[in-house]
Amino acid sequence: MHRIAQAISALPDNPALSARIVVNGVIGICDPLGGLYLPDLDILVVSDLHLEKGSAFARRGMMLPPYDTLATLRILDAVISRHNPKTVISLGDNFHDRVGSALMPDLFRSMIETMARGREWIWINGNHDPDGTTALPGASMDELTHSGLIFRHEPALNASTGEIAGHLHPSATVRRREKYMRRACFATDGRRLIMPAFGVTTGGLDLRHQAMRGLFDHQSLVAHMLGRDRIYSVRFANLLG
């Protein structure tokens, strides 16, 4: 909800309280709307948009609201307007299933076209949408290497440093006065970064979950959690555990 509301009120000249990080020597800005901006490369990274998730469920008999794509794209539009990047990289699971981009209503297609105008746009393929996109601007590929960074959907278990991935939808929990707060987060130990899921109807997976095992150096792992209008940065050791 916070992000939906923020996206509506967000102004390009009203910078949110972000967190500055460094991954393999490259500076990144974690935006509370869920995008990562790399100022030196002028690249905006988002991950796990899961567009057309509602209609994917509707095809299986669960009539989820048909507004998830619209809501996600509005937030994307807000974060693009804020940073005005030269390049946008969407890190996979761009669509919730293989047919999503082909069956997407024209209204949403033209929103993407407008956002992509004057920019380079790269769709990294994910496990939900391994075949690339249909009739959309930009190039589709499995991974991309650039300036010491490697962009791919699924984090590789023994990846070299500089990997920026998605797929796991990381979230983190803090405990405070016997109360628990759980939020999506950017997770990085300075060597690699896992992006929060950007889609409005995507859930989260706790950083302590076994699927996250072996990915980070826990000594230097920090969760940059998405708050109402700012990022909250908490060391792994201080997360619930």
């Binding site: 309280l17 972000s18 967190a19 500055r20 803090v174 405070r176 006065r177 109360k179 707060m181 939020r183 920090v222 959690m225 708050g227 700012r230 990022i231 909250y232 940065s233 908490v234 060391r235 201080n238």
Partner: peptide
């Protein structure tokens, strides 16, 4: 509470 947690308890990593 999140703000409190992040700002007071875990002041070792500062948001900028």
């Amino acid at each position: 509470l999140l703000a409190e947690a992040a700002d007071e308890l875990f002041a070792d990593v500062m948001a900028t």
